[in-house]
Design a protein around this nucleic acid. Structure first.
Lengths: 101, 101
DNA sequence: CGGTCGCGTCTGCTGTGAGCGGACGCGGGC
DNA sequence: GCCCGCGTCCGCTCACAGCAGACGCGACCG
């Protein structure tokens, strides 16, 4: 019986994307949060995949980072493809993700 | 002064993807909901973008549809690209999306 | 025709978690 | 030493995630 593959969760992948883009842009968490109109503590939680942000929140933070939902979702799908090259490597992939978080 | 582009929201795009895939698979809303372990009324709301599903819910419904988060996010990003060919067409694009919903 | 069934959606509800204020640890500058 | 800004921790409130029961509708059957 095949188990469902343990794909990473949306909120983790999204958070990774957001943090990655923010760092690429050289923005601090505090200034991005301010630009997005959210609290710094909340943005911190979003980036760490601790919260399920609403669609409007995602859009606001994307706007603050001068990016868009299309780039975020594309980034997530690309990341997922990198993470899932073959079935037997799943356990190693999981460990790598845990280290990145 | 450039306004932020009125990109569709994540929950709407996700819901459209889920309904599209479900219909492609020839599954009823009721059986997909059962397979995913969610209520039919909730799946209906998800598909119509009325609710912000948790990451686990997204994963559960994806599993029930024999799809994955990578396919969903890729589908969303592709849809966004279709929807945003050029800046002046944004208002027409918005109207088209409203009709689809 | 009336009754039954399954589909998808509406309505109202409760417990949980989204989002945030205040506090904290840390490093850097003066 | 004090101050500042960074990012995160902790605790809180209220909006909403998720669902039970009800409903409208079309299809089917006797």
């Amino acid at each position: 019986m095949a188990l469902p593959d343990p794909e990473p969760l949306w909120r983790h992948l999204l958070g990774d994307q957001l943090r990655g883009i923010r760092q690429d842009r050289g923005q601090t968490l505090t200034e991005t949060a301010k630009r997005a109109g959210v609290s710094p503590q909340y943005l911190s939680e979003m980036e760490r995949g601790l919260k399920e942000p609403s669609s409007e929140m995602i859009a606001a933070v994307a706007g603050a980072l001068d990016t868009s939902l299309v780039e975020l979702t594309l980034g997530v799908s690309e990341r997922l493809r990198e993470l899932a090259p073959a079935q037997p490597a799943q356990a190693a992939v999981r460990a790598t993700l845990a280290l990145a978080a």
